[in-house]
Design a protein around this nucleic acid. Structure first.
Length: 289
RNA sequence: GGAGGGGUAGCGAAGAGGCUAAACGCGGUAGACUGUAAAUCUAUUCCUUAGGGUUCGACAGUUCGAAUCUGUCCCCCUCCA
């Protein structure tokens, strides 16, 4: 069985995964875009290094340096290799990056490509980018909208290097589930409760030394920017005092949790939703063996 | 006690007779999503059975018409005593 555990941040996914993995003696594979980085610990709520070293069945955590950015294609490749390797065993997938999970389990195809230059099309205005994409791929342009600069540029870059529009390219990789033994288990705690837990968690991150970790990161990797877009890190660059920074992190995390729910609710079918981890655990362990 | 300034939607804040259910920001809610995804972007936010109904500290006025003008009252802030 492949148990895919999804839900917003601070919903209890990690605990649930740990319990289910223990019960089934399963391999655990992460699908969280930021827990892959070695230098990011406190702010990502990653399992501790001690825990990971004692649990060799945990995969795709803490293995990548922040100056060597990871991406969805690499994730898909690494993840699928692991799924193949442990095909005979129970597997637990946990994480918060819905798109990574989709790319792993569904029929998404990624072509080899050069990294997009940082300043690609930076001379064009949003309107010009939008007009350009409308000509090439009207459907995608309409989905992206005229203000979503980052994704407009990406769509145009795809066309430039692959000579096909995003819509054309995605045709061969529709939303077909590639594995037939996947059980989706979703955690959806009461919103107020979730927000309380998020607030509390951020407090604990600060107590645990998040500030030191961020300072160290800034010092060691002054040029890294991808990793520092993460919530719990980017807020330290706003020139705010510590208390305001903390409140901003709480707010951004709450907003993020909401976005995660939207993605999981709408991008995955056949999810068994639970309000708390006990019900979810009960479901997983009594229904499957 | 004296002199000023102010009370506007969940919060901050514009508006100084009709174009105002009230700009804008924040927060909230809903949504989009195929290579930066903890990213990026969109919609909505007084109530509503969608026809309307109640709003700008309270009450009473002026006016065809008031958040905007007048009076009284209640709060808040600053300065002088």
């Amino acid at each position: 069985m492949i148990f895919a555990i999804l839900g917003p941040t601070a919903s209890g996914k990690s605990d649930l995964a740990e319990n289910i993995a223990k019960h089934f003696n399963a391999e655990v594979i992460n699908f969280d875009a930021y827990q892959v980085y070695i230098e990011m610990n406190k702010g990502t709520a990653k399992p501790t290094k001690e825990f990971l070293s004692e649990h060799p069945n945990y995969h795709l955590y803490d293995f990548r340096h922040v100056d060597d950015p990871y991406n969805i294609m690499l994730y898909q490749k690494d993840g699928r290799e692991l799924l193949k390797k442990y095909a005979g065993k129970h597997i637990v997938l946990v994480g918060g990056t819905g798109l990574y999970l989709k790319a792993l389990l569904f029929d998404f195809k990624f072509l080899e490509e050069e990294k997009m230059p940082e300043d690609y099309l930076s001379n064009l205005t949003n309107e010009e980018l939008y007009e350009e994409l409308l000509k090439i791929d009207e459907a995608d342009a309409k989905i992206i909208g005229p203000h979503n600069r980052k994704r407009l540029i990406r769509a145009l870059y795809i066309y430039k290097i692959h000579n096909k529009s995003k819509t054309e390219l995605n045709e061969n990789g529709k939303s077909n589930l590639l594995y037939d033994d996947v059980v989706f288990i979703g955690l959806n705690p009461d919103r107020n409760l979730l927000y309380e837990r998020i607030n509390k968690r951020v407090e604990i991150m600060f107590e645990d030394g998040l500030v030191d970790e961020v300072n160290e990161l800034k010092e060691k990797f002054p040029k890294v920017n991808q990793a520092l877009q993460a919530i719990g890190y980017k807020e330290f660059f706003n020139g705010l005092d510590l208390e305001s920074t903390k409140e901003l992190i709480k707010k951004n995390t709450r907003n993020y949790a909401k976005r995660q729910m939207t993605f999981f609710k709408h991008q995955f079918e056949d999810v068994n939703w639970f309000e708390n981890i006990d019900e979810a655990y009960e479901y997983a362990t009594t229904r499957y063996r």
